[in-house]
Write a protein that binds this DNA or RNA. Structure first.
Lengths: 287, 287
DNA sequence: ATGCGGTGATACCCGTCGGGTATCACCGGG
DNA sequence: CCCGGTGATACCCGACGGGTATCACCGCAT
């Protein structure tokens, strides 16, 4: 029934993403003909056509679209299984399952919360070793899904918690971070409209998986770089309250009245069954 | 990095479940030696030992335990991808993605709700074809996970919603279903203690994936059979309110004051992106 | 002690299939 | 009309998945 090998999945995903057999084959480190045959065989075995071969490139059929989405999730699950198994390999002595947990956190947020969490957890009895894995913007979901991480601190509404179990940890408002000298910095509060409408201070744009949203503001991929640009009076940024921790003297933080509150969750794959993870979550909720 | 083929996963899961190479090989329809080699190769490739070979059978190592759990989920995801792709195959014309949704429902519950839902959905514009898939006790989760179903009606607290997106639809109390002539049937209300303590009416035990919980009551796998045994004065059962719909004349329903309320949800895999599904969910929440 | 049944591992063989190279068939554009 | 670029086909080879026969090991019963 499930005659679908992960190699075939990898091949199909490459083709479906490139929409080009040659480039896909190159990306896979193989020649184009075997790739074509593999896809054909896959289509024959599934009994559906996945690609519509036109002159000039390839298009996905409905079934292909489906396999693209479902296959990505499936392949993530497989690589997660392999990764987690490998990681569990060190603890071979059955006496003490010396667990290690990988915790993914967005680099630019939650210093305090993270600190408190790690300290509190380290103080529990028989804590596992926690490896903190800094992750880019909104990359935590992917890391949980493909097994690079076991648990993550995520921020609603920026992260989607779909498919994960999670516990709410903290809610905070958002602030605008402005150059200290700017007229708006004198205000007690601001609205989103206030900060998105300033011609001389276009909102910074964060990279999300290497792609930047459209807009006039500078492209940012690094918090220090952002801080600098703000200090230079070139841009303004919106951050959760806890960002006050890393403000410079040249920065001014002004609360935003109508920005959506940011809720920090601790999240993990729904099927996890690790004792160490449960203990970490328990610790986190009791902070 | 993810050198882990689904064939190997199937092989390992068979061995890990049987804890016996011979039986596992038989179950897989192959000979034992190639199975042994495949597992060895898998262990070498992952760089961890998965099984501890003792005289008399086999035991799982920590890594093996991990691969058993994660691998099950991964294999489910793969078969789900294959199944959903196959199912999406019929709708090849790009004009109208003639979607079909498979809805898993526990056979013995929610007649009314299901009816209303199907009627309301059929009345929407351009409804997809809905295939209703009766599922055994608590089998819906599995069916969503391995792609046999796209969406399910699930009942908290019997089903776990972990890993799915869901919407609450309805909450109901529970009732005890008793033989009409029994002394307890005259009471206005009952407690769980009342019905679990009656020596002449042991609580029925439902099969859950072919396994029955321990206890003195009769083993039930069919609602008609249960109804008959109650009518004969041999057992008592606890059901959600909506079960009143199928009571016999020889049955009496008595509300339970302290039974946990049953919440019916509509649930679907968190990564689903189907328009038809979204529309069905919208319809359901507006009932 | 010794042979027996039952475990998983090894040795060897074969057919299939995954992959490579060379080439074809098709089509749009200069 | 030919050229560049697409994916498909033809053919070949080596690797590997799978089968049979057998071994090595161990507990147990005689």
């Amino acid at each position: 029934m499930d005659v679908l090998e992960t190699r075939e999945l990898r091949y199909f995903l490459a083709v479906a993403e490139e929409l080009h057999f040659g480039r896909a084959a190159e990306r896979l480190g193989m020649a184009q003909p075997p790739l074509s045959r593999a896809i054909q065989r896959l289509e024959r075995r599934l009994g559906v056509s996945l690609l519509r071969r036109n002159r000039h490139g390839v298009a996905l059929t409905g079934a292909g679209e489906m396999l693209l989405h479902e296959g990505r999730a499936a392949l993530d699950a497989v690589t997660a299984a392999a990764r987690r198994t490998r990681r569990a390999g060190g603890a071979d002595d059955p006496a003490g399952p010396r667990n290690r947990l990988v915790l993914a956190v967005k680099a630019a947020a939650s210093h305090e919360l993270l600190h408190k969490l790690l300290d509190a957890y380290a103080a529990t009895s028989d804590p596992a070793e926690i490896e903190v894995l800094p992750s880019g913007t909104c990359e935590q979901e992917e890391m949980l899904r493909d097994g690079r991480a076991d648990v993550a601190l995520m921020h609603k509404p920026f992260n989607s918690l779909a498919g994960f179990d999670s516990q709410e940890l903290m809610t905070e408002g958002q602030i605008a971070i402005l150059p200290a000298g700017h007229p708006l910095a004198a205000r007690k509060t601001l609205t989103m409209a206030d900060v998105s409408d300033v011609p001389d201070l276009p909102l910074a744009r964060w990279s999300r998986n290497g792609i930047y949203p459209p807009g006039p503001g500078p492209e940012i991929h690094d918090q220090t770089q952002l801080a600098q640009l703000i200090a230079l009076g070139r841009t303004v940024a919106v951050f959760p309250d806890s960002a006050r921790a890393w403000l410079w003297a040249e920065h001014t933080a002004v609360p935003l009245t109508d920005a959506p509150p940011v809720v920090t969750h601790i999240a993990w794959p729904a099927h996890s069954r690790s004792l160490a993870l449960a203990e970490l979550v328990r610790t986190a909720t009791e902070l």
